[in-house]
Structures are given as C-alpha cells and as structure tokens.
Design a binder for these strands. Sequence first.
DNA 1: GCCAACGTTGGC
DNA 2: GCCAACGTTGGC
Length: 158
Amino acid sequence: MRYWLMKSEPDEFSIQDLQERKNQTEGWDGVRNYQARNFMRDDMSEGDLAFFYHSNTKVPGVAGIMRISRAGYPDDTAFDPKDAHYDPKSDPAKPRWYRVDVTFERELERLVSLAEIKDHADELEDFPLVRKGNRLSVMPVDKKHWDFILGMENNPPE
DNA sequence: GCCAACGTTGGC
DNA sequence: GCCAACGTTGGC
C-alpha cells in the first residue's frame, strides 16, 4: 500500500466537490504529463491513499485524504474533441493517457498549507512537493512524510 | 499579473 | 540529436 499526493485547482475541482460526487467517487482525468501518467498507470493500486492538494489558489495546501478506488485505466476524455484535454494523438486502440478513480475519505480538520510545510524543511527535506520547481501533479509520498503532515494537522501553528 | 521552472514541439 | 521557441504550471 502506497501513499500519494494529487493536485487540483479547487476552483475546478475541490475536496468538497469530491465529497458531493455520486458515491463520493470521481475519475482523476485530464492528466497530460507522462511522469504523472506513469504513476497512475503503473504504480497506483486500489486501496492506496492520497492527499488531495489544492493548488493555484489563495492558500495552497493539503486539504483532505482520498482513496484510490480503481487502479489505472484509459482516460477517454483524451478521445473527445470537445473535451478541454482532448489529445488527437491518443489512439483508443493504444491509449496514451490514463486515469484512476478516487473516493473521498475525509477532509483534514484544517488545511495544512504549503507555507507551513515549507517551514518544516528539515523534516520534509525530500518531500517532492517542496523541491524547487516541481510541477508534477501526481507524486508519491513516503510514509514518514505522510505521517508527519498528518501530525501537523493536529498541531496548528500559533 | 508576474515570472521562474519546466515540458513539449519542431526546424535543422 | 540539438536547442530555440513556445506553452503550462503554480507560487507569490
């Protein structure tokens, strides 16, 4: 069982939106980055847990937890010319892009902000999120980092 | 809105 | 295969 972090802009799709979806489940589609795709296609398993990270918003940070409820399968939004993430080079016979299904687990009791995470650079030294220039939208999280961030949830800064 | 960092594209 | 140009991400 592995741990992950997945980014979404809350104006587009937030942890609250996921909670309100049917069965509290949604396909994590629209990812058009090969490294992120490889994680979803090759490394994610049903039952893995992921942080839901709110990006490109006033206070970016970890907002909640979700569960991978279906392992990687083809992202058919790539085949739809009307879809914002349409990719004419993705052939249905040999799909280029993959998604997983995620299911709402819980909202964090408070948002653990990126700024706060950066304040703990010592403990989170190798955390990919805070490595300079990292724009990956799907990334693995070590268990030690997972546990540390959950610890921060219950220890708000003054 | 700015812009650094990074990925992708395409000419050569 | 190189690399300049361009597009995107995402914090600030």
